[in-house]
Nucleic acid binder design. Structure first.
Lengths: 225, 225
DNA sequence: TACATTACTAACCAGCGAGTCATTAAAATC
DNA sequence: GATTTTAATGACTCGCTGGTTAGTAATGTA
């Protein structure tokens, strides 16, 4: 049995509220966790800090999520993994040239992920994945693979319709993904010098990269890498 | 005064060697530190592990480097910062078109940094820079700024000679740096799926990116971003 | 062999952070 | 109002790691 405790804080008449809001807690904790994970990384984010930002104590955090790793997984599902179903449907229904489809895909990705806080999760996984193999595997399964599948479907459509050359699809996927990943990493790195604030307009950069890839895709095989 | 210690290990007659090699230690420690920092990141690398890999005890490590941060700085200088003087001279003496100069610069960078372990230091700083502001500042001063200066000199030469359009040099620098940084990050990330081993041939990717940038540089201003 | 120097070691310390649990108090129910 | 239920708390444990230092032994010198 632990030693007895003091109640010195009883002398303070205006106690902080101790509200019971079972419904709202998980969402608030997930939001706080996203903020801090993106800001400081997984390892460097302390559970108590997440709890504090969500307005609860550390004990409460572990009441809703069994561990820090499970909390992170929940953040990933909420912000990335859980949204692929909807995106798949959206692209399934797309009508128009596949080139436009690819342009639309990259633009919409930028608007819904790249320019949001969620992009920090990708940077985080690329940074710390090796130190947390289970999280890395989870992320690959929930985010990387669905993303690749989506892109593969688009590229395959282009080839099937004769709009694209029959390139090596795996190569092409990486050619599309590379500039998007780069932007996420760049945005969240501390290496952006202050004297270069105006550099690297994301939309323009992405558009240029898209045209480069499409140029390669519409020519002879192997030119897309 | 601390409590007295045991000497139970005296009973073991075959003690591990306790060699005195003052000259060799720093180099061995730096090599071990580079390995581990690149492999696990700065925060996740334990000082004792670095010492063990270098074949000494933790106490010896702190005999040669006053702190983990100073050890890291020494690694950065040894592998990146201390080599810019030589590189600057090399490019000062370059003869030929500036387009070739830029191609040569990117290729030589890949051979001497990108494909070596040293590239992991860049990934590390982009990952953990925000958590260690002093290291980030040091890295910017020792690596980022010299690198940008070198690139700026090349681009300026191209403009002065009328080979390049008078583009915004800061934009152009980032257009050149982006693919190199991306390759370093990609190479050291855990997000590379096993089913895509053959994808993204670095040399080919870099060459393609170089031509894209040069295409922009030789046209009207502003097209290089 | 005796003594001095110093590279090296390992036990130690202090602080930190994930996860636990006995206790508290806000609701719900009677 | 009395009683039960359970959301919430925060003091606690425990393991880990950067950094310290008293002590050890390899080497040099006589």
């Amino acid at each position: 049995m632990p030693t007895p405790r003091f109640f010195a804080d009883k002398i303070c008449p205006v106690r902080a509220k101790r509200e019971r809001r079972k419904e709202a807690r998980p969402g608030e904790l997930l939001a706080a966790a996203l903020d801090l994970f993106v800001e400081k990384g997984f390892a460097a984010t302390r559970a108590e800090e997440v709890a504090a930002r969500a307005g609860v104590s550390k004990g409460t955090l572990f009441l809703y999520f069994p561990s820090k790793e499970e909390l992170f997984k929940a953040v990933v599902v909420e912000n990335l993994g859980g949204r692929f179903a909807e995106w798949n449907d959206e692209f399934e229904a797309f009508e128009g040239t596949t080139a436009d489809m690819l342009r639309y895909c990259m633009r919409v990705w930028w608007e819904r992920v790249g320019m949001t806080k969620a992009s920090g999760l990708t940077k985080l996984m690329m940074s710390e994945g090796t130190n947390f193999p289970e999280l890395a595997e989870f992320y690959r399964k929930e985010v990387v693979r669905p993303g690749h599948t989506l892109l593969r479907r688009i590229l395959q459509r282009g080839i099937d319709r004769g709009e694209f050359a029959p390139v090596d699809i795996d190569h092409a996927i990486y050619a599309v993904v590379a500039p998007m990943v780069f932007l996420m990493l760049w945005k969240h790195s501390a290496m952006v010098c202050v004297d270069a604030e105006t550099s690297l307009d994301p939309e323009k950069y992405l558009a240029t990269q898209a045209e480069t890839v499409l140029y390669g895709l519409t020519r002879q095989p192997g030119a897309a890498a």
